[in-house]
């Protein structure tokens, strides 16, 4: 209790403690793993099916995380309803993310239509920038600083991938190497945070009535 506590800091802490269990890191790592594995699958399945095949994988990961959160995390950390300021910030975050997804979709369509017309070097730059902006906004709105680092790593992945592809003859535009390393960092960080969370937050003894004490 020696820590100084401002209202802003209290609000931030009340919000972040609910999510600082490493599960988001693991989910995001598994999500972007597609970019490392799909290039290999596309040789046999084609671009479309090699991406679609990840949908059940993401679903399984999400289900596993939902169950871990319900049966392992919640009994240890409890639950909270956030105040109006945080709820408004989350709504703003949802709107911004929706906008970014629309922009990404439009850019994707433009990229497909202009394939061969503009330099191929521009795609990894736009892809990287979009990831950096998206993750930076998420880090800001969610008070989740690790997302800045993940954004930077993911933004560098296509650029570094192109470099190792051009100068080191790496396969599949270097994506398996760069995205593989980035996703491994994210998943490993998530696992370490989760183990630390379990260690620091043992299940409290059975709750008894306040009046009984």
């Amino acid at each position: 209790m020696s820590r100084t506590l401002s209202l802003r800091e209290a609000e931030r802490r009340a919000f972040t403690i609910a999510f600082d269990d490493g599960l988001w890191d693991i989910f995001l790592g598994c999500f972007f793993l597609e970019f490392a594995i799909a290039p290999f699958l596309s040789e046999n399945l084609g671009d479309f099916w090699s991406s679609v095949i990840f949908l059940p994988f993401w679903g399984l990961v999400y289900l596993a995380i939902w169950m871990i959160r319900k049966y392992i995390v919640k009994p240890r950390i409890g639950s909270v309803k956030f105040g109006p300021a945080r709820t408004a910030k989350l709504k703003k975050f949802t709107s911004v993310m929706l906008l970014i997804n629309i922009v990404v979709l439009v850019l994707g369509v433009i990229a497909v239509l202009s394939f061969g017309v503009v330099s191929s070097q521009i795609y990894p730059i736009i892809f990287g920038l979009t990831l950096l902006i998206g993750f930076s906004l998420a880090a800001y709105f969610l008070d989740f600083p690790r997302l800045y680092i993940y954004g930077l790593l993911l933004a560098c992945s296509p650029l570094v991938g192109e470099w190792v592809y051009t100068y080191r003859n790496a396969s599949h535009h270097g994506f398996p190497i760069t995205f593989g390393v980035t996703c491994s960092i994210m998943i490993l960080t998530g696992l370490i945070v989760f183990i630390r969370f379990l260690h620091n937050n043992p299940i409290p003894v059975m709750e008894t009535s306040v009046e009984e004490r």
Binding site: A14, P75, R76, G78, S79, V80, K81, F82, G83, R86
Partner: peptide, 25 residues
């Protein structure tokens, strides 16, 4: 400390408050 945390959220359960404040049960 308890009131500060309750002031910035709509509601919290007992365990959540315990974790936030570091107080014993």
């Amino acid at each position: 400390m308890v009131l500060t945390y309750l002031y910035v959220v709509e509601s919290a359960d007992f365990i959540y408050l315990m974790r936030l404040t570091g107080l014993t049960w």
